[in-house]
Design a binder for these strands. Structure first.
Length: 285
RNA sequence: AGGGACAUAGUUCAAGGGUAGAAUAGCGGUCUCCAAAACCGUUGAUGGGAGUUCGAAUCUCUCUGUCCCUG
């Protein structure tokens, strides 16, 4: 019989942490976090990870385990998470995974194709070209060197265009040639449990959580990270807005309401992402 | 109580006799490695009533509401 991975997912602030700890205790399983921001050890106040008390109740993985100083991607998460599960499943029949990062969850469940790691230098050059010559210029180059990708990706999305270009340029093989459009085989079964709340309820929880983050010293945490503000990790709701405040672009009050708004939008995008995933069993809290 | 000003989308503000627009919020969607990212799309309003006019958000009257001044 295959071991089973139970994934608890849901929008931000819905209450995944509490629920997962209960469930993990029931299954005597550790918790594998699947959250693209809680895995940074420098980002604590603004990412609402499990508390110290909660972490003491159940062993957690991928919580404050990485640094904002290094680039991290969904691809690396897939590799690291699979390695970890390989080990943990030797002792556990069931493992609990919790998180809100849709792409990271998909990476674990279906697997990403084996693109080479992003070449930061190539990305840097492309990003500068984007600023200088505009997106259209990058689009035209993609059309030339990988027309297949030009046809299939969102060519108005600069991140995607750069991604396709950087892989093609860095490896000499077309970005589209890496795609296999096939899910990877996994050695474990997967059960997805989605948690949802009524929208007003969720929005109230989001607003409350942001107020608590401010009380807990979000501004200080963000101030301590100014040197890394250009790293992708810091391109995060709650951090961007405070950077703007520290720059004097907006008032603290504006920053707070922007954080609330952007968190609401994030929650909505999460729901959209999972909207068509028929494997998820939904549960309203 | 008297005098004055104002009333347009959830909010802030345009249009001053001729197709009611914008920003923002809200809502919906996309997604194979920066994903708390990066994109795309969209609903919605002239406070109520009467009048002038071919035609009223716009002019007149009235009611209602809000604000200011005076007592």
């Amino acid at each position: 019989m295959k071991p089973k991975l139970i994934i608890i997912l849901g929008p931000t602030a819905v209450g995944k942490t509490n629920y997962s700890i209960e469930l993990a205790q029931k299954f005597a399983s550790p918790i594998i976090s699947c959250d693209s921001r809680q895995l940074y050890k420098e980002m604590i106040v603004g990412t609402a990870p499990p508390s110290i008390e909660q972490l003491a109740l159940v062993p957690h993985y991928f919580i404050q385990s990485h640094t904002v100083k290094e680039y991290y991607t969904a691809g690396r998460y897939e590799i690291e998470a699979l390695e970890l599960m390989d080990k943990l499943f030797k002792k556990h029949d069931n493992l609990i995974m919790v998180g809100g990062a849709g792409l990271y969850i998909d990476a674990v469940c279906k697997g990403l194709d084996d693109f080479p790691d992003a070449d930061q230098k190539v990305r840097q050059i492309l990003t500068e070209r984007l600023e200088k010559d505009g997106l259209e210029s990058l689009r035209m180059e993609l059309k030339k060197i990988d027309p297949q990708s030009y046809e299939t990706i969102d060519i108005y999305n600069k991140q995607r265009v750069i991604r396709a270009l950087e892989v093609t340029i860095a490896t000499g093989k077309k970005f589209s040639s890496y795609k296999r459009n096939k899910n990877k085989e996994r050695f474990f079964d997967i059960e997805k449990l989605g948690i949802i709340r009524e929208r007003n309820d969720l929005y109230n929880r989001i607003n409350l959580r942001v107020d608590r983050m401010m009380e807990a010293g979000l501004v200080e945490e963000v101030r301590s990270l100014v040197n890394y503000r250009n790293m992708p990790a810091l391109n995060t709701v709650g951090y961007k807005e405070i950077f703007d405040y520290l720059d004097g672009k907006i008032s603290l009050e504006e920053a707070v309401s922007l954080i609330k708004r952007n968190t609401r939008r994030y929650a909505k995008r999460q729901m959209t992402y999972w909207g068509r995933d028929e494997e998820i069993a939904w549960m309203t809290l």
